[in-house]
Amino acid sequence: MTYCVGMMLRRGLVFMSDTRTNAGLDNISTFKKMTIWEEPGERVITLMSAGNLATTQAVISLLDERSKLPEDRTSSLMKAPSMFQAACMVGDTLREVIGDLTDGGQRADSGFDATLILGGQIDGSPPRMFLIYPEGNFIEAGDDTPFFQIGEIKYGRPILVRAFDPDLTFESALKLLMVSFDSTLKANLSVGMPLDFFCYETDSLEKRHVGRVTADNERFQTISKGWGEALKQALDTLPDVGMESI
Results as ranks from 00 to 15, higher is better:
Thr2Arg: 07
Cys4Arg: 03
Val5Lys: 04
Met8Ala: 14
Arg10Trp: 08
Arg10Asp: 15
Leu13Gly: 06
Met16Gly: 05
Ser17Thr: 14
Arg20Val: 00
Asn22Ser: 15
Leu25Glu: 09
Asn27Ile: 08
Phe31Met: 01
Lys33Trp: 01
Lys33Arg: 10
Met34Ile: 03
Gly41Val: 03
Thr46Ile: 13
Thr46Asp: 06
Asn52Trp: 04
Asn52Gln: 10
Leu53Cys: 07
Ala54Cys: 07
Gln57Asn: 03
Ala58Asn: 10
Asp64Gln: 07
Asp64Glu: 12
Leu69Asp: 11
Asp72Tyr: 07
Arg73Gln: 10
Ser75Gln: 11
Leu77Asp: 13
Met78Cys: 14
Met83Ala: 12
Met83Cys: 05
Ala86Pro: 04
Val90Arg: 10
Thr93Arg: 11
Leu94Cys: 10
Glu96Pro: 00
Glu96Leu: 15
Leu101Ile: 00
Leu101Gln: 13
Asp103Ile: 03
Asp103Ala: 14
Gly104Ser: 08
Gly104Phe: 06
Gly105Tyr: 06
Gly105Cys: 08
Asp113Glu: 11
Ala114Trp: 04
Ile117Pro: 05
Ile117Thr: 10
Leu118Lys: 08
Gly119His: 13
Gly120Phe: 02
Ser125Leu: 08
Pro127Tyr: 03
Glu135Trp: 07
Ile139Ser: 15
Glu140Asp: 06
Gly142Lys: 01
Asp143Gln: 12
Ile150Arg: 04
Glu152Tyr: 02
Ile153Cys: 14
Ile153Leu: 05
Lys154Val: 08
Lys154Cys: 07
Gly156Leu: 12
Ile159Lys: 01
Leu160Pro: 10
Thr169Asp: 09
Ser172Phe: 13
Lys175Asp: 07
Leu176Gly: 03
Leu177His: 04
Ser180Glu: 01
Asp182Gly: 11
Thr184Met: 00
Ser190Phe: 09
Phe197His: 13
Phe198Thr: 02
Thr202Tyr: 00
Ser204Val: 05
Leu205His: 13
Glu206Gly: 04
Glu206Ala: 14
Lys207Val: 02
Arg212His: 04
Thr214Ala: 03
Asp216Ile: 00
Asn217His: 14
Glu218Gly: 00
Arg219Tyr: 15
Arg219Val: 12
Thr222Asn: 13
Ile223Lys: 00
Ser224Gln: 11
Ser224Arg: 13
Gly228Thr: 06
Glu229Asn: 12
Ala230Ser: 13
Leu231Tyr: 00
Leu231Asn: 05
Leu231Lys: 09
Thr237Phe: 08
Leu238Gln: 15
Pro239Val: 01
Asp240Ser: 11
Gly242Met: 13
Glu244Trp: 04
Glu244Tyr: 07
Glu244Pro: 02
Ser245Met: 11
